[in-house]
Each structure stands twice: as structure tokens, then as C-alpha cells.
């Protein structure tokens, strides 16, 4: 720990003059204002600068303890948070809790109280049940970062997607962002919807009706209860959806969806909804191709498109570390 450079450097130092960050937790993007998103974006720029250094480390969070508590398997998100925390000089404890430990009698509540008692200041939690981070945030002093909860939210993924889009397209106002696939069960989609709506993008979702949330009707009829999610254009036809797209985001298809009768087959899904070169021709030339990973290549996206020059998929992963550094930094610094 003492081997790290002790000078934060220009970009980080410049952040000190930013407007106060009031937020204690990052649970979803639904209540993020545009200025708050801007703060994260600018802080991410600074963190990217840090990551570009020969020794990509700053001691900004030295002495802080960050716990990642993952109730679901995850490679990229957990690793991304861990790298982010380490790059800021924090101590990191990774706790992999299986859902079975819940059944063994250790409640989430007890677990997080214990982690707080041992001295964690920031808790990153991934949980299969929607709302779990809210339960925690209500009852602990720690700052809580939602690392993905059920079908509900994945705010750092949303932020890294926004960051990636902005770095290619600039201001997102009026930009046509098409999200394709399992919207109903996707926390990534939900957080993106909120963030994109706040930044003024035109959002199109494209999926068969079985993968759309209740009330999101493809026939153009207004939803009965309009408060559920930001307004979007709903298409079941991929070609129509892709017309004039600036961003094309394919979502991972959970393979168990077939068993619950949501889809007839992968083959039919790929035929109707796979983002491939031929379909992509309908989008704007050079449209950005994104995917939150992990990909089922050949199902929701063709290998050729995933590896094309238009693809920002690897860049999303890289940006993920910087965005998570920004979030951890802002939470740690914002605390009185």
C-alpha cells in the first residue's frame, strides 16, 4: 500500500472544484438528474486518464474498505468493481454469497450488518432479487452501490453505456438508441431507459411481446399506466426498429427463456432478432453496436458484428472500470 504514488494528479485534483455530490447510494438511474449524470461522466474522464498512466493507481480512497457482496455469479462486474477500487487505493474484500446461504439461515440483513461492523465503508451488492440493495441501503450507514438487482436495475452498467455512447456521439439528445431483446427481464435495459430518457435520447425497444414488460404494447396503443418506465417506441419488427439508429444495443438472451414458453427456439429468435450485418445496414452508417455481455454470439448478435469496427463492446468493458472508479470516488468523497 505504501508503494503507491501519493500524488493524485491533475485530473483528479480538478474534480475537487465540482459541485457537491449529495448522493449516498447509487441504486438506480431513475432518480439521477442530468447534472448528476454529468458529474459521473466528467469524473469518469478523469479516471480514464488515471487508467492510462503507466502505474494506473491513485491513493484517493486509501484507507477505505470496499466490500463486493455478490449473490449471483459475475465475472466482469465483480472484477470491474475490484479493479476500480484497487486503482483508487482502497482495500477490497470480495464476498461471494450463494443464494443457498440465505436458505441456510444467514439473512442478507445479518450479512450486511456484519460487513458494516467489520469496517466496510462502501458496499457493492449484486443480488438476484429485485430491491435487495434498497433493503440494505435503508438499514446501514455504508454507501451502497447496486451492482445489479434481479430484473430491476444495474446503474453502473447504465452509466458505462451512457459514457460509451457519449464518447462516440456527444450529446445524446435526439439520438436514436435501439435496445433489442429481453427487455422484460433485463436490469441493464431498465437502467439504460432511465438514463437515456434523462439525457433526451429517442429510445426504441424491440422484442417479441413475450419479452416486453407488462403494459409495453407493440401496437402503438398508449400504456394504461404510464408511470412504469420512461416513454419508448415499441417495435416487434427489427428492421423497422433499426431504421436510422445511432446506437444498436443487443441484450443477452437468457437461454432458460425457452423453457418458460417465452420463445419457441433460439433459431427463430436469431432469425427475427439477431443483429447481423444485413440488418445493421438499416441503421445509420457507422452506428454504434453495444452489448452488455456476456454475449451469445450467433444468437442475439452475429460474431461479425460483435467484432466489427462499429462494435464498442470491448470499450464498454474498459469504460466500466473507469465509471465504477468514478462512482466509488464520488460516494467516498461525498460523505460528510
Amino acid at each position: 500500500m505504501s508503494e503507491e504514488p501519493t500524488v493524485a494528479g491533475g485530473a483528479i485534483a480538478a474534480l475537487e472544484v465540482q459541485p457537491a455530490w449529495e448522493r449516498r447510494h447509487v441504486l438506480d438511474l431513475d432518480d439521477f438528474t442530468r447534472p448528476e449524470i454529468e458529474i459521473v461522466m466528467e469524473t469518469t474522464d478523469a479516471m480514464k486518464e488515471v487508467l492510462g498512466r503507466e502505474v494506473p493507481r491513485v491513493p484517493a480512497l486509501r484507507g477505505k474498505t470496499i466490500v463486493t457482496l455478490f449473490y449471483e455469479a459475475s465475472t466482469r462486474t465483480r472484477a470491474s468493481f475490484e479493479l476500480a477500487a484497487k486503482a483508487l487505493g482502497a482495500d477490497v474484500i470480495n464476498v461471494a454469497a450463494s443464494d443457498s446461504s440465505v436458505q441456510k439461515g444467514e439473512s442478507l440483513y445479518d450479512t450486511v450488518r456484519t460487513l458494516q461492523a467489520v469496517g466496510a465503508q462502501i458496499l457493492v451488492i449484486r443480488h438476484g432479487s429485485s430491491g435487495a440493495p434498497y433493503l440494505v441501503a435503508r438499514r446501514v450507514e455504508m454507501n451502497v452501490v447496486n451492482g445489479g438487482d434481479g430484473w430491476h436495475a444495474h446503474p453502473t452498467q447504465g452509466l458505462l453505456d451512457l459514457y460509451t455512447m457519449r464518447s462516440h456521439l456527444g450529446d445524446l439528445r435526439g439520438k436514436r438508441v435501439v435496445i433489442i431483446g429481453d427487455i422484460a427481464h433485463s436490469r441493464v435495459a431498465r437502467s439504460n431507459l432511465w438514463g437515456l430518457a434523462t439525457l433526451g435520447a429517442e429510445i426504441v425497444v424491440c422484442a417479441p411481446p413475450t419479452l416486453l414488460p407488462y403494459g409495453m404494447r407493440p401496437d402503438g396503443s398508449p400504456p394504461e399506466e404510464p408511470l412504469a418506465l420512461p416513454p419508448v417506441i415499441v417495435e416487434t419488427d427489427l428492421d423497422r426498429a433499426l431504421e436510422g439508429a445511432d446506437v444498436v444495443m443487443a441484450l443477452r438472451l437468457q437461454l432458460e427463456r425457452m423453457a418458460s414458453g417465452l420463445l419457441p427456439s433460439l433459431r427463430e429468435y436469431a432469425r427475427l432478432y439477431q443483429v447481423n450485418e444485413e440488418r445493421l445496414a438499416r441503421a445509420r452508417p457507422g452506428a454504434l453496436v453495444m452489448h452488455p455481455g456476456p454475449m451469445n454470439e450467433g444468437v442475439e448478435i452475429s460474431s461479425a458484428v460483435a467484432r466489427s469496427l462499429q462494435s464498442a463492446i470491448e470499450e464498454q468493458v474498459t469504460n466500466g472500470v473507469a465509471v465504477r472508479m468514478a462512482v466509488l470516488y464520488l460516494l467516498a468523497r461525498g460523505k460528510p
Binding site: G150, W151, H152, P213, Y214, A228, L229
Partner: peptide, 9 residues
């Protein structure tokens, strides 16, 4: 209903 959609439940 809409609340379930909102909460991802």
C-alpha cells in the same frame, strides 16, 4: 401491473 414493472418484480 405498472408497479411490478417499475420494480422489476
Amino acid at each position: 401491473g405498472w408497479v411490478a414493472v417499475r420494480l422489476g418484480l
